[in-house]
């Protein structure tokens, strides 16, 4: 589904060149749950931006579903993001003045045509993340965990082929983090492809495959032998709280 070959990315600021990615090869198959880990400045976020078509690589080849994306125009990339990709960000990135429902409806606004059943689909997506009781709340009226669940619903609503999550638990407490990961694990169990960036080993161990990036290079790429089940952890946590 995703095939990267020799992807490089160099930032230019004036005459200073900052190479961030030094040639990444990566193959992500449908239904994988991949965690990209690495220290700050390793280029993992840049890699995710390139994978998510938010940024263009400086060199190399990126084929998404067999399409060479470097040859696509900005508008075509936007269309692909809308059609095939979903994003979850560390800072949630919800529109603060819009309700949860309106936030989830946002992708449809840019889908070319607004589907008849948009509202039903948005409600279903919010139901999927357990927020059917929060449809008309604004981000300011919800907890961080709830906001991130709205963001997941927004990523889900267009039924994307891949969900990208950039440090989705970075701003959350342990319990909310576990809730978010357990939702992602559930989505993976339904057959969705998920690529997640994190620097938290505990989160990394809840995915199925772990890619470590250091200084713009892949240093290890191996399956997680026994992924932690977030739901179990959550229950343990709840019992401990009692």
């Amino acid at each position: 589904m995703i095939k990267l070959k020799g992807i490089t990315k160099t930032y230019y600021r004036g005459k200073v060149e900052t190479p961030v990615l030094l040639g990444i090869d990566l193959h992500v198959r449908e239904g994988e749950f991949l965690a990209i880990m690495g220290p700050s400045g390793s280029g993992k976020s840049t890699l995710l931006h390139i994978l998510g078509l938010l940024d263009r690589p400086t060199g190399g080849s990126y084929r998404l579903d067999g399409i060479e994306v470097s040859s696509l125009s900005d508008d075509e990339l936007a269309r692909l993001r809308n059609d095939k990709l979903g994003f979850v960000f560390q800072a949630f990135h919800l529109l603060p003045k819009s309700t949860a429902l309106d936030n989830v409806l946002l992708p449809f606004t840019y889908a070319g045509h607004f589907p008849e059943d948009a509202n039903a689909r948005a409600r279903r997506a919010l139901g999927r993340v357990g927020l059917e009781h929060r449809l008309h709340h604004r981000p300011g009226e919800m907890s961080g965990g709830e906001c991130q669940r709205v963001a997941i619903a927004r990523a889900l609503v267009n039924d994307p082929e891949v969900i990208f999550a950039d440090e989705p638990t970075g701003n959350l407490d342990q319990r909310s983090s576990l809730e978010i990961i357990s939702i992602l694990q559930g989505l993976h169990a339904e057959g969705r492809t998920i690529v997640l960036v994190t620097h938290d080993t505990a989160v990394g161990c809840m995915c199925r495959r772990l890619l470590r990036v250091v200084y713009g290079k892949v240093v290890s790429d191996e399956p997680v032998a026994e992924p932690t089940v977030a739901l179990q952890q959550l229950q343990t946590l709840k019992e401990a709280a009692k």
Binding site: A78, A91, L106, T109
Partner: peptide, 16 residues
């Protein structure tokens, strides 16, 4: 800017 970034991420084109 970040609102615009979000819109772009979910598929808004420049002209949108």
């Amino acid at each position: 800017a970040y609102e615009i970034g979000v819109r772009r991420a979910v598929g808004a084109r420049r002209r949108d």
